[in-house]
Write a protein that binds this DNA or RNA. Structure first.
Lengths: 333, 333
DNA sequence: ATCATAAATGCAAACGTTTTTACAATTTTC
DNA sequence: GAAAATTGTAAAAACGTTTGCATTTATGAT
């Protein structure tokens, strides 16, 4: 009663051809006469033969599997990217080994190791921070890697993003344009390059162009979660800010509700711009003005880029910047 | 420059032992003398040897990989289950091959086939409906399967759920208790057993016990999405209902905002109970009263159950019902 | 010491494919 | 009609492990 599997050998025998020929048929190799192909296909059908991907992977050194590292499955931002990744992966016949790796918990390297052991053909990395040890691990494995929705400050790996500097600058300018002089910047860990090196720069650039002094006490560093947003509202309000650029929707939504529940009127008394334009921005009241990133596309393009790398195709540019915009809703004047 | 990999053979040679011994060391087989183990470990360290999981899978017929089918990654309900699954999988050293398979698009069987080809040791199936062809495919593969957050009307496969009949019955009773006589039931496809056979039954049971005639025109069948909720609000309102039981949070949130934007006061003029108690219920205003399902746990327990099946351990019961409750918030009186 | 037993190791055959090589059969070319 | 080129097929060697079995070495009781 054990898994008695039909192998390529059974098919070969039954069709009176060699295993090699069956393999060719299965893989669409043109060097097979139409009638033998036909004959083999008949037998495959009859025996209901299914190639074993593991054996195939061992023999061919290709597993048609890619690893995907995601910090948090339940964060809509990452889930949206993942959907783009998944769709394109399926399109190109790749399976995805997904692993969530909370950077905070130092799980990344362990998880990565287990994924690499599975001989994935490529890897997509989401999440804000790529540690040195992770980078080293990746290099040693020589597996093609693309970052999705996160930057590589060393600019060595493939990556797909929007221009975070410009986006945050525009968002800040939008708030400046309605007369705000004290604009808070609420974001995640500054050690993440995307925050500390890119977004912050955009924020500062906008202020500087408007001849407003950068005030560190208006920068709030917290984590990306609803609760964190609720929690930080009071502090931001007390800082004297009259508007905020927030870099994550869950955070922004928590923040907004903190304001709502504290009876501050949005946008009359306080304006908010968030950054990811996920469904959340439309669910809350007032709806949130947001930087619009093409989330699905970032994932999709990242995966597409990865397929090229895995095929060793020529890559015109390994850092792709997708367009962004600002969608005005009701949390700004 | 090609991937010159260190194999078990290299380690064996360098440590002057046989491959078998190295294999034993790597796999923690106790039949190795401490000092040889030590010696081998040193060499492994020195050569930075990493076992190839594909070869391992071929030789041992175990891949330490499980397949996970998810209908929609961006639906927080499923994402929450997935997180539970992922955590437990990691705990037991399994990797996850994740595939999203929109049942609507008939992708399920194709995707499933590709996953099974990868020789996964087990499979977790989410999503409301298990078609006959899918079921057949699963049976033929003899792969252990657990359904998470969905029922098996034939009661053949493992599954982890709450008692959907009781939960919806209680939710309906909650609405009856505040005097509602026309309660709408807003849900997904009735062809999905979880809706047509379980939840509906709970709804009907509550009505019947309250001696209220079941009125089919109060049952609304739509899809699980924010837009669908917004869209259906008017129809429900026009039906004369004064309250609704809704079986998906995104749907409920859309519905709520439809009501809000149409200036119906919740809960004064219309009461709502939703079903999944995701973060969304706390994000909207008024916050939504909800059936509370232990989402993370459903996923976690499902994965745990699957590990037992994969180990061929004795299973006390293959259908697990986890406790539920009703969390009262502000969308009910 | 001696033998029986148990523990540690090695040998070599799987595992189910792909891929290389070689050759036979066919087709093309002149 | 022979030589050359092409095509179709088979045989066998990888791929990097695990594992059953045989063999060697250690252990302990006599």
């Amino acid at each position: 009663m054990e898994k008695q599997t039909i192998t390529i050998y059974d098919v070969a025998r039954e069709a009176s051809v060699s295993m090699a020929t069956v393999s060719r048929v299965v893989n669409g190799n043109p060097n097979v006469r139409p009638d033998t192909r036909e004959k083999v296909l008949k037998v495959i059908e009859k025996l209901d033969y299914r190639p074993n991907a593991v054996a195939r992977g061992l023999a061919s050194h290709r597993t048609t599997t890619v690893g995907v590292l995601i910090p948090d499955l339940t964060n809509i931002f990452y889930a949206s990217l993942a959907r783009g990744i998944d769709d394109v992966a399926t399109m190109y016949k790749y399976n995805i080994i997904l692993a969530s790796a909370d950077a905070a918990k130092n799980k990344v390297d362990t998880v990565l190791e287990s994924i690499l052991a599975k001989q994935v053909d490529g890897l997509i990395f989401m999440g804000p921070h790529l540690s040195d040890s992770t980078r080293k691990e990746l290099e040693r494995s020589k597996t093609p890697v693309v970052l999705a929705g996160t930057v590589d400050p060393l600019d060595k790996l493939g990556s797909v993003n929007i221009d975070y500097v410009a986006a945050v600058k525009e968002a800040t300018q939008r708030l400046l344009s309605t007369g705000n002089e004290h604009i808070a910047f609420v974001t995640g860990a500054m050690t993440d390059p995307i925050n500390g090196q890119y977004r912050l720069k955009g924020y500062q650039a906008a202020l500087s162009e408007a001849k407003i002094a950068y005030d560190e006490s208006l920068v709030f560093e917290t984590e990306y979660s609803y609760r964190a947003g609720e929690a930080i509202w009071d502090a931001v309000k007390r800082s004297g800010a009259t508007a905020a650029v927030i870099t994550d929707d869950e955070l922004a939504v928590g923040f907004l509700n903190g304001a709502n529940d504290g009876h501050t009127r949005i946008p009359e008394d306080f304006e908010i711009i968030t950054s990811n334009n996920t469904m959340l921005t439309e669910i809350v009241r007032p709806k949130l003005t947001s930087i619009a990133q093409p989330l699905y596309d970032i994932g999709a393009v990242a995966m597409r880029l990865l397929t090229k790398m895995m095929n060793k195709e020529e890559i015109e540019q390994k850092t792709v910047l997708l367009p962004h915009s600002i969608i005005t809703r009701s949390s700004t004047k």
